[in-house]
């Protein structure tokens, strides 16, 4: 089962490798991992998308908690939460494709953030499925380059991950 784990970790050098090293050493999956400092610059927040049986997920959260630099760990996919991912996609946009690409971006509520005479960069945010659907909906031969941020996630309402 897919799980989204959010954690707060001391913003110190090597923090990321402690977490990624744990996953590789114990053979856990990482589908995506994002990390950036929070409003408190001494803390970083990570969102890790992983998968595994309940036993494995239990071990993952315990092992993460055991890391000395980790302050808090929450499996946010255990209850209502919001996930978003950012994608920047550079596509060929010439002739009739140019108009078509603009239309598709509009349908998916994407924004064209850069344009040359032959290409667009489209910015798209949403959950994973939405971004996948966009890629599925356009002519893939027109894709020049894509970059995705990986998921960031946050619990809804009163579920707050803070110090």
């Amino acid at each position: 089962m897919r799980h989204v784990i959010a954690l707060l970790i001391e913003n110190e050098s090597g923090a990321l490798s402690r977490v990624s090293g744990l996953f590789s050493a114990r053979g856990y999956n990482i589908e995506s991992l994002t990390v950036a400092p929070t409003e408190d610059a001494s803390l970083s927040r990570m969102t890790i998308v992983t998968s595994g049986s309940d036993d494995i997920i239990e071990q993952i959260t315990k092992q993460l908690n055991k890391l000395v630099d980790v302050v808090k760990v929450v499996d946010i996919s255990e209850s209502a939460h919001v996930e978003r991912e950012l994608m920047l996609i550079k596509v060929r946009a010439t002739g009739k494709d140019r108009e078509e690409m603009k239309r598709m971006a509009d349908i998916f509520r994407g924004r064209i953030i850069d344009a040359t005479d032959s290409s667009y960069i489209i910015e798209l945010t949403g959950n994973q499925t939405k971004l996948d659907s966009f890629i599925g909906a356009i002519d893939t031969t027109l894709i020049l380059e894509t970059v995705r941020s990986g998921i960031v996630g946050i619990g809804r309402g009163d579920r707050i991950l803070k110090l």
Binding site: S13, G14, S17, R18, G21, A25, V68, D69
Partner: peptide, 14 residues
């Protein structure tokens, strides 16, 4: 050293 020992220490510091 911090990188090499990371998986076999409780914690390490530079």
């Amino acid at each position: 050293t911090v990188g090499i020992t990371r998986p076999c220490v409780k914690h390490n510091f530079l």
